[in-house]
Write a protein that binds this DNA or RNA. Sequence first.
DNA 1: TAGGGACCTGCC
DNA 2: GCAGGTCCCT
Length: 294
Amino acid sequence: MSDWPFEYQIDSPDVNLAMCVRSGQVFRWRIRGHLHWGVIAGAAFVIEVDGNRWHVQSNANPSECRRIFGIDVDQTQLWAKILAGDFGLADALKECYGLRMITQDDPVETLFSFLCSANNHISRIEGMVNCLSEYGEVLGEWSGKTWRVFPSLDVLTCIGESELRAKGFGYRAPRISQCAKRALELGGIDWLNHLKTIPADEAMEQLQLLPGVGPKLAECVALFGLGHQSVVPIDTHMWNATTRRYFPELLGTSLTDSRRNLVRDEFRRRFGDLAGLAHQVVFVDEMRNWRLRR
DNA sequence: TAGGGACCTGCC
DNA sequence: GCAGGTCCCT
């Protein structure tokens, strides 16, 4: 057992980790009281939140940590811009204090995490993602745990259907290796990284060449894994929230491609490049209300 | 182009 | 019964 490569403190981070997790950006992050731990962007973290200070153990140095969690982002400025796009979000913005877009940089992990998410619920998705990450290379052994990066496309192609069936993947079991194979045919990790550099809409079109990837997953991968900040992932919750807020005449109708475009255009018109972050605010607010209703 | 059904599994 | 969809079919 070796020590963590880096141990440091971050003073007054204006970031609420629990809020970032609640907004559905990451699946490999655990919280127990003041203790947070997980792997993000190929870096392992144990973070103890001590009042106004983070005690961090990681293989990522302080500047990498600050970048990943958006520590130095000026939230006041962002919130003002979102508020200007829709004054009706004032209350939701207050509830979302400390929310950030986490910089993940690992489109493979994002892609396969959301591949597990279709027609599924969070607790099982997390279990499945953790299961897949067991196939990843070891980052290190710290704090009594073996920390792993998410497996590469090559490794994912080798995971058999029966193996994943046995681990409770259900009908998604064959999709993992199928999707990985197709991604390799399209150019593998270089192709995925290239999608960061082209317009968001083109990137999403390309992503949908993958089996099991429809518009919603393409949106999630584009926003969370490729860093396309203007993308708005629209799931059932977002559709409910958005019709209530902006398209009351469509309340109760089903979400089609054309209506999806309608929502995307409305968010871009209102929030521009902050459309993705505005989406997070609306999503967190909607999920909070949804839980309260139940 | 809109609507409807099947799909694994686990938790309500 | 339903869940942070996708795919296939009218």
